[in-house]
């Protein structure tokens, strides 16, 4: 009989250190900027692809942007299911770089009715960052990161 103490073999599982290293980018959009040609980057780069400078300064990007391209995941991966719909988008941040992000709370409104209604996000929709759970890591801890929703803050 199977017992919960009998391990299920799993190959090549990273330790929590791997995801932990990138938490500032996930929580707060910490990117960086080339000191020589001032191009901003997210995620952080180690070498500027434009001028090959290795002098880059960390910078926290503003948590606001606009939708450039949007789609909707109807077959979410395990750990990402549970919502009625899972819209996502490329968002052009106010500070320049673009991010790929899930969109949340897009099917809400003062009198939003049924579930899974059509998403109201289109090209140009203003969005803001919220931190949500991305998934539970293979090694156990929760991995949190940015998602975006229609902008409330002014």
């Amino acid at each position: 009989m199977w017992s919960p103490t009998e391990p299920v073999y799993r190959i090549a599982t990273p330790t929590p250190a791997k995801a932990w290293r990138s938490r500032d980018g996930r929580y707060r959009l910490v990117g960086n900027r080339c000191e020589d040609c001032v191009l901003p980057f997210f995620p952080k780069r180690r070498v500027c692809p434009q001028c090959h400078s290795r002098s880059l300064t960390e910078t926290v990007l503003a948590p606001y942007g606009r939708v450039v391209s949007a789609a909707e995941d109807r077959t979410p991966l395990i750990g990402h299911v549970g919502r009625d719909s899972r819209p996502f988008a490329i968002v052009a941040l106010e500070d320049g770089p673009c991010v790929l992000t899930e969109l949340v709370d897009v099917d809400t409104g003062t009198d939003a009715g049924g579930e899974g209604g059509p998403t109201t996000v289109t090209e140009g929709t203003e969005v803001e960052l919220v931190v949500r759970k991305w998934r539970r890591e293979a090694s156990g801890p929760y991995q949190y990161g940015y998602k975006f929703r229609p902008r409330r803050a002014r």
């Binding site: 995801a19 980018g25 995620p43 077959t75 990402h80 790929l100 990161g145």
Partner: peptide, 14 residues
């Protein structure tokens, strides 16, 4: 991307 795409739940079809 292993840091910002896969853990956020984006596979190739997305």
């Amino acid at each position: 991307d292993a840091e910002y795409e896969a853990p956020a739940g984006f596979d190739y079809v997305d």
